[in-house]
Nucleic acid binder design. Structure first.
Lengths: 341, 341
DNA sequence: TTGTAAGCGTTATCAA
DNA sequence: TTGATAACGCTTACAA
């Protein structure tokens, strides 16, 4: 039978050693004679020993847990990030306890406190409801990704540069008017907001006609689609005959626009160019492969783990450091040419 | 400062009570006088107490952890399932430790053993590499979802019925030839294999021309797209002029077919009907909303948690039960009419 | 190379 | 209603 719940004590009794020696067998095998190692190893088999990490955590004070809070799973960006984190297990050995907050600030606090009581060694925040100032006060290593990050360490895509590249690409493709769609009313300090800045910067540099559109709190996908349809109507009637370049703040939006145009015209009209943002799998699954500014998820996550691990180390040697300052890292985006520009 | 690491002992010293009383304050508050409760509560504030669940686990033997292993995150079915599990936290209070296996049998074993050593109370398996016989031997409550389940409890969509409904719908829409695309070489005992059975059953009942196509181990999305293109070529030349009904074993495949047709014809040709399977968000994001057989993810997960929790309870009262038999639950799928049939 | 004993922060069992 | 004391299973000085 599995799950026999043998303990070091049982192994010790069986072999005639002490618990300590059993512990050594696992933690510094070289300090146990070959011969005795075999005896112990044999006993483990016989008693079907199953290690108990909970006890080890308590004794050592290291959980090897990292907590991670995402806003949701239906935006593919978040599950690509999550997947990437899970993959770091082989490299770092950290296990992940995952919560999905749905943007509810109160549950988010509860989740954090739950995580803290499990003594997670670090926290990854993708969700943006709780201000970084509060997060920093929890006194646990923490890193934010693509969220407001004034008081905490963070990793972000270089949104300004990504947006600028996308905008330049549209220019160079001969577009005569440049349009940008972004989410409205987002906090100014949010990284995604830099995409507007990048767009405007290039438009002004090149002195080209442009406009920024925003969509609001459309709650579900249906509403969002309708909002976009209205917007496309607007664009078609305002600039008929112009060569139009549309930079969308996400692949999801770009996909909706593209679908809308295909339903109207059976193709991407020749006077239309579209580019998205994120480089999510949706960009490939679209009716035409979307051109997009790819966020390098692997690098975002690598960097985040790196920051987290060094914070965790720091706090083990509380000798020198005053409370060290937040570190902000930036990952270069990659322009990915699809079929829409 | 946060993270002050006060313990019951500190609270006890501060208030003059014993550790035991502090413990009672948390676990059976009514057994402590109102007055003393306030004293303690005050001390908690002052000392900034942060509970330590690791110690509690060790003392009580209950972790409130459930382990979950998914094959990957890029198939939206899995992350919708995962998201749904995370949401059960408010109802059941279980935390989830998540691993993504990428179909690697060896890592999967390692993950399981890791999970067991954290004394998870139960296991959810979505991944199919490890046979259920082996899983059942681990002696921990376990439930599989849409995978081979001979020796373990499980929850599955009624794939036979779903496929039958889809096929009937195509018939009723006046299709003259019915086609089905599924993954080849899949283990016969896999639930998704029932979709072929359902398709064939209805085709024979109605005595209608039909064919089953399969695709193989195409490793990435590109290859898969190419395979599908060849397949569509084949279909177009074999049944020109026929009214064709195509039942795909996933929304992902249906989406590829639909995109392919749109690229060729700028529309879904009038002699083509398509229906997918899963009811994933991709079905909505497609160039035309896909008709699909929706797997009721919320019910799948509800049922799974229910099975798991009752197994967990059972094993707390080891009095009566011999090793209880695996339970298999089935969730009815829902036909969702999109614009493709 | 091995063993003794104290400790990690809770809960559980008795008594008082 | 409260308190001593012994678990829970492992780690870690310190000794032998």
């Amino acid at each position: 039978m599995a799950n026999s719940n043998a303990t070091y004590q049982d192994i010790a009794n069986y072999t005639g050693f002490s618990k300590t020696t059993i512990s050594r067998y696992f933690n510094r095998p070289e300090s146990v004679t070959e011969e005795n190692r075999e005896k112990i190893s044999h006993a483990l088999e016989v008693l079907n020993y199953q290690s108990n990490k909970v006890a080890r955590i308590l004794a050592r004070g290291r959980t090897e847990f990292i907590g991670i809070i995402v806003p949701n799973m239906y935006m593919s960006f978040y599950d690509e990030i999550l997947d990437q984190f899970l993959k770091t297990y082989d490299k770092y050995g950290y296990k992940f306890i995952v919560f999905s907050s749905n943007g509810n600030e109160e549950s988010e606090r509860q989740y954090i406190s739950e995580l803290l009581s499990y003594h997670v060694e670090g926290l990854v925040m993708l969700s943006h409801t709780i201000p970084s100032f509060e997060l920093s006060s929890y006194g646990v290593p923490i890193v934010g990704i693509e969220r407001e990050d004034l008081y905490i360490s963070s990793v972000n895509t270089d949104n300004l540069e990504g947006a600028a590249q996308a905008t330049r690409l549209l220019c160079d493709a001969g577009c005569e008017v440049l349009l940008h769609i972004n989410k409205e009313g987002d906090d100014d300090r949010t990284p995604a907001h830099r995409r507007i800045d990048g767009f405007l910067k290039v438009c002004r540099e090149r002195n080209i006609t442009h406009r920024v559109f925003t969509y609001g709190q459309e709650s579900d996908y249906q509403d969002l689609q309708q909002r976009i349809t209205v917007l496309v109507d607007d664009i078609l009637t305002t600039w008929p005959g112009w060569k139009k370049g549309l930079f969308c703040s996400s692949d999801s939006i770009a996909n909706i626009v593209l679908n809308d145009l295909f339903r109207r015209f059976g193709q991407l009209p020749p006077d239309f160019r579209i580019i998205g943002f994120d480089g999510s799998s949706l960009a490939d699954q679209s009716v035409l492969p979307l051109s997009t500014v790819e966020q390098q998820v692997d690098q975002l996550v690598d960097s985040a783990m790196d920051l987290l691990v060094s914070q965790i180390r720091e706090r083990k040697e509380p000798e020198q450091n005053s409370v060290s300052e937040p570190v902000h890292r930036t990952i270069a985006p990659v322009l990915r040419q699809g079929a829409t520009v």
